[in-house]
Write a protein that binds this DNA or RNA. Sequence first.
DNA 1: TTGTACGCGTTATCAT
DNA 2: ATGATAACGCGTACAA
Lengths: 342, 342
Amino acid sequence: MSTVTITDVAKRVGVSVATISRYLSGFTVRNEEKIREAIIELNYRPSAAARNLKSGRTGIVAIVVPDITNPFFASIVEGAEGAVGDDRMILLVNTGDSREREEKALSQLFGRVDGVIMAPLTEDEQGPSFFSQFGLPIVFVDRVTQDGEKFSSVLTDNVKGAQLATDYLIGHGHKKIAMISGPLSTTPGKRRADGYRAALKKANLGDQYFIESDFSEAGGYAAMCSLLERDDAPTAVFTANNLMTIGALHALGDRGISVPEQISIIGFDDLEFAELINPPLTVIARDARLQGSQAMELMIKHLNDGVHTPPEHSMVDVQLVERGSCGAPRESQKVRSNKIGR
Amino acid sequence: MSTVTITDVAKRVGVSVATISRYLSGFTVRNEEKIREAIIELNYRPSAAARNLKSGRTGIVAIVVPDITNPFFASIVEGAEGAVGDDRMILLVNTGDSREREEKALSQLFGRVDGVIMAPLTEDEQGPSFFSQFGLPIVFVDRVTQDGEKFSSVLTDNVKGAQLATDYLIGHGHKKIAMISGPLSTTPGKRRADGYRAALKKANLGDQYFIESDFSEAGGYAAMCSLLERDDAPTAVFTANNLMTIGALHALGDRGISVPEQISIIGFDDLEFAELINPPLTVIARDARLQGSQAMELMIKHLNDGVHTPPEHSMVDVQLVERGSCGAPRESQKVRSNKIGR
DNA sequence: TTGTACGCGTTATCAT
DNA sequence: ATGATAACGCGTACAA
């Protein structure tokens, strides 16, 4: 271990530790040149631990996400990392959708970080607000907890996005529109379901094709299968996140069901490869990186202004990216072709 | 700030700080019940900073990757996170392919972490070995530096993978086989190029279709474009990583070139959605998560056994996942159809 | 088992 | 501008 301390440097130069400390803090001192040399020769690095103890700051911001392999969260992290600045670093916690790991991580975070940016697993947990008792600022990203209004957050306009998607399907003439939803215990799960139902209601359509799933690829696959097994299968599907969209597409592929001829599909969250899929996938897109950077900016503001700054709530816009996975419903195609046939 | 210290707890219970400290360390003490209560009532949390200073340990392992939005590195991180254990956490550094950020991060890491798992940007850097002067264990993952033998590492069998891919193309009858390579300054870039060239040589083929690119989607796109513009275009392409494969496919898609009829393509690294692409993508696959967990296990071994344990080198196997993006070369198809035509 | 006191490496205060 | 020293919160050797 590089156990060379500020005292060693001081001895080497022949001054007191205070002088070295001042030099390191940017003050003007007498023997700057000699100090510089001594530091290099001795290979001295200030101890972060000692500084933390003295200052009460760690220069580290934690970011807690459910699944780092989900491209959406990876982009969030990237955005946050890009906005963290030169004097801070990021501590990543990947909870792997496990409540237990999330709780344990939260308890371990105390004292190691100056603040926490997190996407909580579900809305009905109290960990975060309990956590903030210790004076650590919290910024929610993509998801909030029940008492989320008390903390800053960066969300997506989920309701609008889901309405956009559903309206788009309705506009194509679909009546039997399914939704493969995320868990209603999560913010995006709930809000997107709300938007879907609102759009259906406006068009006087029922929500008998609503399935609550789990935001996973396997969940999307299973949900799509159960939809297809119905006597009266839907003609269009809105999948509530990227992973479930992939799962649903796999289910369709396995059954040889063609998109959009036999069924239309629109997903929430764009994918790097959406254009490469056959057919290119139509989606509701948003800027995940922006969400991450905004969350970090809010965090930095809290860190600088003190813990008593009022919470701020930011909302990132969504937009429909039209590609080729949606068309007119099967039935109406039949009708049309019949007409033509006459 | 929760400024309640061990002293506060001691006063509250009426014992000395040493007793509280012992209780926290798992020793048997007299007033356990009262101590438990006091801790809860006061909301006491031990200061990680003070513990770090005392013990010289932080309980944090850094993991440094070039791009967290690359699914491959995300899986590495996930694997590492899964193997980190209960008493440690992960500090993520995303260098964004910037040498400057990598260096700065490395220097900031000292004193904040017990060890560093990293995928260095290029092989010709000295940062890591310089870094290890401070006694911090280093484990390389996926990539190494020049003097990488001195440190533990977890690599992929890149040469074998590239040979597998190239041989596969050769086996389909291709003669004009291109490679869109990664930077030769990186471990996987260099090794995969080696494997490609070895396979070509064995088959008495030349490497005039070799292009060195940069592992990015844009780079893959550009490389594929330049390949297509040649008078004597290749009939098959081996793309050296996932992102460049996506870029190459985009280029093909934009030009309406069909796979595998007009050109065959095989990529290195599997993709979640490889089956969803039209046609399903044939790739060289490996277990990125395993690489991550193995790296973490090596790190933990170093941490436990002391810094003077000899370095270990692990190699993860690769395999060819055959789907539908490779076929016979255009020319031979023509020939065959001519024959049939007669 | 318990208490006292020192040290971990740094910064800040107070004299000089 | 510089030096001596207290303090940050904790763990532990030593003594009891």
